[in-house]
C-alpha cells in the first residue's frame, strides 16, 4: 500500500504543471475566481494540490488541518463564498481522479486499489477545509452579534456620577430586557447617581417599549439612581399622552443639553462660560 501511495505521489508531482494548468482553466471558466490574477491563481492551485499530495504521502490529515486553519481566516476576511472554497478543491479532486484513471486504465484491479486509497483522502481534505471555513464564519457572526448587543446599550460616562445612555433604533423585548439588566448591573458596579437616557434616536414608541423604559427607571430608583429622559420627539410625546402612559415622577427634559444641566444642578456642580480676555 505504501508503494502505491508513493507511486501516486510521484506521478502527481511529475505532472504538477499540467494539473495546475488544467485547474486554472476550469476555475477561470467557472467564473468563480474573477478577481484573482494569474499569479494568485497559480499560488492557490499549487497550495491546494500540495495539500492533497502531502496528505496522501503522510496518510494523515495534519497538513490539511494546517492549511485549512490558515485559509479559513483569510477566506472569511476576503468575504469568499462557500462555493468558491469548495469548488476549488472539488475541481482539483476531479482532475486528480481523471489522471489516475488514465494512468491505470489498463489494469482495472490496480485502478480500484488506487482509487480506494485516493478517494477517501481527497474527500476528507475537502471536508476539513469546508468545516474550517464555516467554523470561522460562525465565529465571526457570533462576534458581531455580541458587538451589536453591547452597542445597543452604550453607557458613556460624562462626568463623575453622570452617565449618558443614548438609545437608538427599535427597543424590542429582547433589547429591553438586556437594557434593564445592563443598566442595573452597571449601577451596581459603578454607583452612578444620575443616568441621562437620551431617546432622540428612537423614532416611535409603543406601550411595551414605554413600559420597559419605565421599568428601568423604577428599578434604578430603587437602587438609588435617578434616570432622566431627554430628547423626546413630538411624535413620541404625543404617543405617550395618547396611550395615557403615566410618566409621573420621571424627570424629562427636551434636549440632552438641558438634561446635562439638570444633572449638574442636582449634583451641586456649576457650568459657566469661561471669561474671555
Amino acid at each position: 500500500m505504501m508503494e502505491i501511495r508513493q507511486q501516486l505521489c510521484e506521478l502527481f508531482e511529475e505532472n504538477a504543471e499540467e494539473i495546475l494548468t488544467r485547474w486554472i482553466a476550469i476555475m477561470q471558466e467557472s467564473g468563480l475566481v474573477k478577481d484573482l490574477t494569474q499569479k494568485e491563481l497559480e499560488e492557490r492551485g499549487k497550495a491546494k494540490s500540495d495539500t492533497i499530495i502531502k496528505c496522501l504521502k503522510a496518510g494523515d490529515f495534519a497538513e490539511a488541518d494546517a492549511y485549512a486553519a490558515g485559509m479559513a481566516q483569510k477566506a472569511v476576511r476576503e468575504a469568499m463564498t462557500v462555493d468558491q472554497i469548495i469548488s476549488g478543491f472539488l475541481v482539483l479532486r476531479d482532475i486528480f481522479g481523471r489522471f489516475i484513471k488514465q494512468w491505470y486504465k489498463d489494469d482495472l484491479d490496480q485502478l480500484m486499489e488506487v482509487l480506494d486509497i485516493y478517494e477517501p483522502i481527497a474527500r476528507n481534505v475537502v471536508n476539513i477545509v469546508a468545516s474550517a471555513f464555516i467554523k470561522e464564519r460562525d465565529f465571526l457572526v457570533k462576534q458581531q452579534q455580541d458587538a451589536i448587543l453591547k452597542l445597543s446599550t452604550p453607557l458613556v460616562q460624562l462626568w463623575e456620577n453622570i452617565v449618558l445612555l443614548p438609545l437608538i433604533g427599535i427597543l424590542d423585548s429582547v433589547r429591553a430586557k438586556q437594557l434593564i439588566e445592563s443598566v442595573l448591573t452597571y449601577i451596581g458596579q459603578t454607583k452612578t447617581e444620575i443616568i441621562i437616557m437620551d431617546i432622540a434616536g428612537i423614532a416611535a414608541i409603543d406601550t411595551k417599549t414605554a413600559h420597559h423604559i419605565l421599568l428601568t427607571i423604577q428599578a434604578a430608583k430603587l437602587m438609588g439612581t435617578e434616570i432622566i429622559i431627554t430628547g423626546i420627539r413630538p411624535e413620541v410625546a404625543t404617543t405617550l399622552v395618547t396611550l395615557a402612559i403615566n410618566m409621573q415622577g420621571v424627570e424629562t427634559r427636551s434636549t440632552l443639553r438641558d438634561g446635562v444641566e439638570y444633572a449638574f444642578n442636582k449634583l451641586g456642580l456649576k457650568m459657566s462660560e469661561a471669561s474671555k480676555h
Binding site: 434593564i180 439588566e181 442595573l184 448591573t185 449601577i187 451596581g188 454607583k191 452612578t192 447617581e193 421599568l215 423604577q218 428599578a219 434604578a220 430608583k221 430603587l222 437602587m223 438609588g224 439612581t225
Partner: peptide, 28 residues
C-alpha cells in the same frame, strides 16, 4: 432611606409592580 438594593432585587420589585412608597433610596 433604603440603600444597597441589588440589581436582582430591584428588577424583582418592579416586575412585581411593588413600589416602596414614601421611601428614599440611595446607592450607599
Amino acid at each position: 432611606v433604603v440603600t444597597g438594593m441589588s440589581p436582582a432585587v430591584a428588577i424583582t420589585l418592579t416586575e412585581m409592580d411593588l413600589s416602596l412608597s414614601g421611601v428614599f433610596t440611595a446607592l450607599d
